[in-house]
Design a protein around this nucleic acid. Sequence first.
DNA 1: TTCTCGGCCGTTAACGCTAACATGCCACAG
DNA 2: CTGTGGCATGTTAGCGTTAACGGCCGAGAA
Lengths: 345, 345
Amino acid sequence: MAKEPASAPQRRPLTLRDVSDASGVSEMTVSRVLRNRGDVSGATRERVLAAARELGYVPNRIAGALASQRVNLVAVIIPSLSNMVFPEVLTGVSEVLEDTGLQPVVGVTNYSPEREEKVLYEMLSWRPSGIIIAGLERSPAARAMLENAGIPIVEIMDVDGTPVDNAVGISHRRAGRHIAEAIIAAGYRRIGFLGTMMPHDHRARKRLEGFEEALAAAGLHVEDREFYSGGSALLKGREMTEAILARSPDLDFLYYSNDMIGAGGLLWCLHHGIDVPAKVGLAGFNGVELVQGLPCHLATMDACRLEIGRKAAEIVAGKRLDGVTSGLVIELEPKLEPGDTIRRV
Amino acid sequence: MAKEPASAPQRRPLTLRDVSDASGVSEMTVSRVLRNRGDVSGATRERVLAAARELGYVPNRIAGALASQRVNLVAVIIPSLSNMVFPEVLTGVSEVLEDTGLQPVVGVTNYSPEREEKVLYEMLSWRPSGIIIAGLERSPAARAMLENAGIPIVEIMDVDGTPVDNAVGISHRRAGRHIAEAIIAAGYRRIGFLGTMMPHDHRARKRLEGFEEALAAAGLHVEDREFYSGGSALLKGREMTEAILARSPDLDFLYYSNDMIGAGGLLWCLHHGIDVPAKVGLAGFNGVELVQGLPCHLATMDACRLEIGRKAAEIVAGKRLDGVTSGLVIELEPKLEPGDTIRRV
DNA sequence: TTCTCGGCCGTTAACGCTAACATGCCACAG
DNA sequence: CTGTGGCATGTTAGCGTTAACGGCCGAGAA
């Protein structure tokens, strides 16, 4: 870490050369000291470090990366930062990458395939040493870029599909089925769905598909549905709940595509004296921390966000015991957290 | 944007040379085409683009940056991604940078000065063309690095202090005073404070200082306080509110250091039938979207997050009409949003 | 004594690209 | 017919660093 340099702000940016001049050794030796690589005597090491600190020298990784053909960056490409799920995945990634010398670099696609393509291209142009990217669905061009990148790729969040290389995630289809079965088992029969309109949120779509499959298997179906896009999810949850119950007052269960709108719905029900879970049951998805703060715990399903981040990072960092960095598919098991909004049977 | 290449995954990574060979022109011409710079005839342009697409070539920005001494990256260094405030700032930054060719790169410090130093060093080693960094308080080493970087620096969120170069933010001290005055004007007298324990959240500290100043000026003081660290803020808000009201049942106002714990407190009060705002008034800080989803609107103060991100990005991008990129201090005015949790006078 | 060997440090040649300049060509003016 | 200027392209020389190798020197082995 650089300490404050004694010199005034310089015009010409500092190079290894400046440090080498200041310490009377070759640039190569300075480079060795700064990277802790190769043999350097304790005395010169000290001298070089002192000079570097004195000058406030910060190595130029651009030149370093070009010369060494190595870049310590891992691209992490996610759809959004406002959906708390993704910062949590990032936390898992950072944790594992922390002591590997690798560094995550985040790109955000806003659920747009075009932006994903652009972000990916941009990222690849920095020649990262690995890519962690959300989802399995992408444009042919994006897929081709991943296939040709020649670095470890990990597609995360989802395993319902064909990964380019590795995948770490849960089966959203199965998660949807699972919760539907729990709802049916609890005796609910007239079921409504509330979700987002985003056509590119494939995971929400798959959950709904799995959900409907399980209902169908029990001779049931989604009786009414309500969609939204944009805005405060919590508020939308309130509004949508009001709307769907006004339209279909007989519904006895509301399944929300995420916890945030679920929480809004729950607050609305509580505020309007609706008996949860006796008269109406509720469930969301993701297991976000927020639901723990509500007066009544929303049923939800943990999406294993932290673990997904960790496992993905382990793969790109080559940290797995078996050393495998290609062709892996790791399916995690989301746990149903019944909370207080599903009847106990 | 690259389309899918016909070739199989190559061993040797592609270079300009491969494209130049494939299209029968010099590397320089390929470079010109790919960067849209200099004169190239329409015919060769097409030929080159076709070859590049065919091969799936992605330019190597590392080499490009080294040769041109220009890097299209802007480092954005923030304390956290889980506090929704920062993703929102990022949104503002991205919006403005979108059509400038610049790209934000995020670094997270977790409110730790040591990590900030490390992240900053790391970022500087990529020679970004600008830095946007949260807060004004930092280690001497970090400050020195900023001073010597020789690029536009914008310190954001806060203007109560001495910026290294530019600053865009609000005065948290003044914001604290402002809300205290509103509380006093509404007739509240026995005031409690609930906040975070983080010693490095200087902005929360300054708000509290301003808050206490204004109370003192009116002959009042904070009668009780409650601190937390970590965990679900919403849940903590509930618990802390219960604790402080159990200990000091006479309090008639609770000031929360952020909206999240404020929301938890509000939910607790509503759930326990406490008359808000008649018996107890509440206020938070930040104006996060979430509060709009609550059954009753928490009083809050907008921290101008989006605007801060935009203005900061405009400075580093040299987008200001006056062209100034140095020595600016832009103070934004946070608006008090009284909501439903402060008595109307 | 000579020979090896390992620790320490320097030299050279890339890495893949672009700035700057050079070149060839053609149209058009004189 | 020659000169001139602009367009289209090529050539050269780095950018700041590191890989690879080479050299020197002193200590211990033969």
